[in-house]
Design a protein around this nucleic acid. Structure first.
Length: 565
RNA sequence: CGCAGGGUAGAGCAGCCCGGUAGCUCGUCAGGCUCAUAACCUGAAGGUCGUUGGUUCAAAUCCUUCCCCUGCAACCA
């Protein structure tokens, strides 16, 4: 039994998660966690909200709330959304927790003691009316190059030139609109990445053969361009106060404590049952843990460079990522998801239209693994109607309805296998072996392709075996064929569980069975599994597993979610 | 010359690392079946593998030119 630690990039507290966020880290991490549990492994799956930073402060200000209550409220909102998608995390924590504070301090002090922290003076824009330092992007003005009047202090969106806030003509705070700004000097702490680089380089090299291209090449790019010391403190109120003399009025930069949040949240989890759980069993290199991280490509530099460097710099043997699964982006009907423009499907709305499993299956089978991919309702409808209804749902329906009407509502007896059953078992075993292989290698598109191929084997078998013809001459043989088919339903349910947990439970319930979510797929052998549902066991036909999506409904959805450019 | 990823049948993807009959799903067309959800099964048509030049007996695959899409460019997360 392997110990597998799974984390998804922590969604930022302010954001409204859309399908792109779901598919870009949260959903695949859940599918993987469920799969590895089913394989009998000891999985710890950690998610939570990333809460610090200017954006929450500003968000709270706009909502007229204090930051803590604002984050409390949004934390609940995120939690509910992910529960609606059936994410099976062991703990949904917060980067603002006491536990994370404790670990952040511990790591910081180790880095400081080891000489990886240095002081530097930084010039920054201060807004006198807002009484705060402004991050570059919270300053707008006219671009000196192209004259665009909404250029941000970090970059002009119009001409794409990278800017300094001081380049802007007529700079203003985007928070209050005030132009009462001045440049002030402030002392900050930096993590000396160049000093850690040799260790980091060596560690990263060991991942080259294993990580997906998207991840490794991005990490390498940063090393090639040369690392620079990275500022880890901010002049803000909302965050962990810096425990160092002269820095009492500053907090840690959100990107310093956010990834440490994986550890902090694990401690939140273990603090709930301190006699049974220990975060230290998961977070040190000698604990024999396999650690897999999921994230979008924008997050890769932080997880492949700065966070590992932070951990390496402690010299405390903290667990670092073994496999970094980076994803590209999902675009929406050819453009970007945008809450402000009301374009795209947001996670909360998605589950009001269709149950989570529709989205889970669709997103996993079209996950942006090698390049960006596009969500369209045409494709969504096609996948739901073809794969879920036509292939899987229809198989369950035809088998149970036929058995019920021709034989009765108990499982008919099995019989000696013919060449047909032997061939079925052989084909299934081939696809299932590949399914397991691809799942454990985190090749989701390929894995989902094999899952679908497994379902097709069912329809293929029943077509070739023709129980509707055989029953006229040989009812016993027809019953044996249907016995195999009912066993196939159970097998399909077990295999589909990581992707579509609700549907799997529904399928199993029809056969009066339950899913074993721990080890249900361990030592899976088709020959044996095809005999699991025994003669005489009762079953229910039930309603269709999925609803079809009509062309009219597809058009309605497109209109409702703003697909028109 | 900023960097990275991508450009393969009408659509969406695999194959590229380790050159050697271009594969899968949807869609289209034809056939089969009638247990089932206008579904299921089988077969066919459809591709000068973005572009230029090169290496090689042989290039989607290796090197090179240019073009297009996406993301990043370190104080937004």
């Amino acid at each position: 039994m392997k110990k597998i630690l799974v984390t998804s990039a922590l969604p930022y507290i302010n954001g409204v998660p859309h399908l792109g966020h779901m598919v870009g880290c949260l959903l695949p991490s859940d599918v993987y966690a469920r799969f590895e549990r089913m394989m009998g492994n000891n999985v710890l799956y950690i998610v939570g909200t990333d809460e610090h930073g200017t954006t929450s402060e500003v968000g709270a200000l706009k909502a007229g709330m204090d930051v803590q209550s604002y984050c409390d409220m949004n934390h609940e909102r995120h939690y509910k959304t992910y529960k609606d998608f059936n994410l099976s995390f062991d703990y949904f924590g917060r980067t603002s927790s006491e536990q994370n504070k404790e670990i952040t301090y511990q790591i910081f002090e180790a880095l400081d003691k080891n000489g990886f922290i240095e002081e530097r003076e930084v010039k920054q824009v201060y807004s006198i009316d807002d009484k705060m330092f402004l991050a570059d992007r919270y300053i707008t003005g006219t671009c000196p190059y192209c004259g665009y009047d909404k250029a941000r202090g970090d970059q002009c969106e119009n001409c794409t030139k990278v800017l300094e806030p001081t380049d802007l003509i007529n700079p203003k705070s985007t928070i209050s609109g005030s132009s009462n700004l001045e440049v002030r000097t402030s002392k900050h702490l930096f993590l000396n990445l160049p000093k850690i680089e040799p260790q980091l380089r060596e560690w990263l090299k060991s991942k080259e053969a294993f990580w997906p291209d998207v991840a490794y090449s991005i990490a390498l790019k940063w090393l090639k361009e040369g690392l620079e010391p990275r500022c880890i403190t901010r002049d803000l109120k909302w965050g962990f106060p810096v425990p160092k003399k002269g820095y009492e009025d500053k907090v840690f930069y959100v990107w310093f404590d956010a990834p440490i949040g994986y550890i902090g949240i694990t401690k939140q989890w273990s603090d709930e049952k301190p006699t049974q759980r220990d975060w230290k069993d998961w977070w040190f290199e000698d604990k024999d843990v396999y650690y897999v991280e999921f994230m979008g490509k924008d997050n890769v530099p932080y997880h492949s460079i700065t966070f590992p460097a932070t951990l390496l710099g402690t010299n405390q043997n903290y667990k670092k990522v073994d496999y970094l699964k980076g994803f590209s982006y999902l675009t929406y009907e050819g453009g970007k998801f945008s809450k402000s423009e009301n374009r795209g499907v947001f996670a909360g709305d998605a589950v009001t239209e269709f149950k989570a499993d529709y989205w889970r299956y669709f997103l996993m089978s079209n996950i942006p693994e090698s390049s960006d991919s596009s969500f369209t309702f045409d494709l969504f409808s096609s996948v739901v109607n073809k794969d879920l209804n036509g292939v899987l749902g229809n198989f369950v329906s035809r088998v149970l309805k036929m058995t019920s009407s021709k034989i009765g509502n108990t499982v008919p007896p099995a019989d000696t296998w013919t060449a047909l059953e032997n061939e079925l078992a052989a084909n299934l075993q081939t696809h299932i072996d590949l399914y397991f292989k691809y799942m454990s290698e985190l090749e989701f598109r390929k894995a989902l392709g094999e899952l679908r191929a497994v379902w097709v084997e069912g329809n293929n078998y029943i077509t070739l075996a023709e129980p509707w013809t055989v029953i006229k001459e040989d009812p016993k043989r027809a019953g044996a064929i249907l016995n195999i088919c009912i066993n196939l339903i159970r097998i399909f349910a077990l295999l589909s569980y990581p992707v579509m947990p609700e549907t799997s439970e529904n399928m199993m319930a029809r056969l009066d069975l339950k899913i074993d979510e721990h080890a249900g797929l361990k030592d899976f052998n088709v020959q044996k599994e095809l005999l699991a549902v025994k003669e005489g066991m009762p079953f229910e036909v039930g309603e269709p597993l999925f609803e079809r999506i009509t062309p009219e409904r597809t058009e309605e959805l497109k209109a409702k979610y703003g697909s028109a450019k």
